[in-house]
């Protein structure tokens, strides 16, 4: 099976004297569903940031989608990010854009035609049950609704890899279930690799998944 992520002796840090992930080795198969757990401050979000190139490794090698992230140029990084779908805990929606335009963002960046873009956005809005809110701005929506918009944006361009950082952290049960259903659906129907950083793996999850745990700077698989 192809590996979508390969990390060898990967060390991550915000400052040189405080290593968060220390010489980690792991790989993730293409099309798998992975949970990454760990205590607060263990480095879960740091690991996720390194996967989309927001934090460069200080040591080792990290290959995502066949692209080495150590010493990557901004042009190559942009290219890689165009094939990722990222869901953030704080949603990261553009406040001055309507939710429709927010969902369109990866499609615009990837240069999709307007007609395709519109039909894809309409379909995603139905999936996240926000079709009647298309013209609203993010701040007019609840937290759960904003995260559903962020989810729709992450799925819009059929990415090879979805990275979700505590996607249901502050959400109500209804929105949380909707998010998990969408992530499961993307994994099952589109064979998208999904990596979710979370405190707790939901009991309602129906699919097979892998579980990695981060502790004391080390990443190990929980079998």
């Amino acid at each position: 099976m192809d590996k979508v992520i390969i990390a060898q002796n990967l060390s991550l840090a915000y400052s040189k004297d405080e290593t968060i992930i220390n010489k980690a080795n792991f790989s993730i198969d293409s099309g798998s569903f992975v949970f990454v757990t760990g205590a607060s401050g263990s480095g879960k979000s740091t690991l996720l940031k390194s996967l989309y190139g927001a934090l460069k490794p200080i040591e080792g090698s990290l290959v995502v989608g066949g692209v080495e992230l150590c010493g990557i140029s901004s042009k190559k990084l942009n290219f890689l990010r165009r094939h990722l779908g990222i869901v953030f805990q704080d949603y990261k929606l553009v406040k001055e854009w309507t939710i429709e335009k927010n969902i369109m963002l990866p499609l615009i960046i990837n240069g999709y035609e307007k007609s395709i873009t519109q039909s894809q956005v309409d379909s995603l809005l139905k999936h996240v049950k926000l079709q009647h809110q298309a013209g609203k701005y993010p701040l007019e929506l609840s937290g759960g609704e904003q995260q559903r918009v962020a989810m729709a944006r992450a799925l819009a361009h059929n990415p090879i890899l979805i990275l979700a950082d505590e996607p249901t952290g502050n959400l109500d049960d209804y929105s949380s279930q909707l998010i998990w259903n969408l992530l499961e659906g993307a994994h099952e129907q589109l064979k998208t690799t999904v990596i979710v950083v979370t405190h707790h793996i939901p009991e309602t999850i129906k699919i097979d998944y892998k579980h990695y745990h981060i502790e004391f700077g080390d990443i190990h698989e929980v079998v």
């Binding site: 927001a54 990261k92 553009v94 001055e96």
Partner: peptide, 16 residues
């Protein structure tokens, strides 16, 4: 900055 950062996270080139 916020909008530019978000666009950057989705791979938008500098000009966009």
């Amino acid at each position: 900055n916020e909008r530019m950062s978000i666009m950057g996270l989705f791979g938008a080139p500098a000009w966009l």
